[in-house]
């Protein structure tokens, strides 16, 4: 059965990890397979653009740099004219609402990204092994996101709660490397993988 929005990039990797799925300790990684990604481009000086985006997604566009908004979807700031929508909703009804009159440019990126969720006491320590950004408790707050490096891959990192839980969004072709990286470097902290549908 083929799922429209299932990302298979880490499938093999997960299969190898089956043995460790059951015993989750201080640190866990969930792989979110069935979500959609949309990339939005437009000018923040164009109020029609902002209004239209908010109407289409029923959610505020995060205008503050390196933040994300939470509603029906997660909308991440990527650049002054670029955002990433991560959603579990069907894309078709959303895309149908987009008006050709507005200077809003959208690309489907569903096949291009994979999202992992890193959770637990040691999440910060593990990420800091390969990330030069200061993600200390007082420095990287809930609602903040950052495009940065993890090991030798680029990632979008976001803090969603105080457990803490980090969303790691990575380009599909780097997902296996990031998975491997988290596994190898996570040995130190007893990392475990789970697959979330």
């Amino acid at each position: 059965m083929l799922n429209e929005n299932k990302n298979y990039a880490l499938d093999d990797f997960i299969n190898e990890e089956k043995s460790s799925l059951s015993s989750s300790q201080g640190l866990g990684i969930n792989i979110r397979a069935e979500i959609n990604f949309l990339n939005i481009r437009g000018s923040i000086n164009d109020s029609d653009f902002i209004k239209h985006v908010e109407a289409v997604f029923q959610q505020a566009l995060p205008l503050d740099f390196n933040t994300f908004s939470v509603g029906e979807h997660h909308i991440y700031w990527l650049a002054p004219d670029e955002w990433l929508v991560v959603t579990e909703h069907d894309l078709k009804p959303i895309l149908q609402k987009i008006s050709p009159e507005i200077d809003l440019y959208i690309t489907n990126q569903t096949g291009g990204y994979t999202q992992l969720i890193l959770q637990g006491d040691y999440a910060r320590s593990l990420l800091s092994k390969g990330c030069t950004l200061d993600i200390g408790e007082k420095k990287f707050l809930i609602g903040q996101c950052a495009q940065t490096g993890l090991g030798k891959a680029g990632i979008l990192l976001a803090l969603t709660d105080s457990k803490p839980s980090f969303n790691i969004i990575v380009r599909r072709s780097f997902a296996e490397y990031v998975g491997l990286w988290l596994k190898q470097c996570g040995n130190e902290f007893g990392v475990n993988f789970t697959h979330k549908h």
């Binding site: 740099f65 390196n66 650049a79 002054p80 030069t132 950004l133 950052a146 495009q147 940065t148 490096g149």
Partner: peptide, 11 residues
């Protein structure tokens, strides 16, 4: 100017 202080390796 947008993301704040980052390590040289990001540039």
């Amino acid at each position: 100017p947008w993301c704040g202080e980052r390590d040289e390796t990001e540039f």
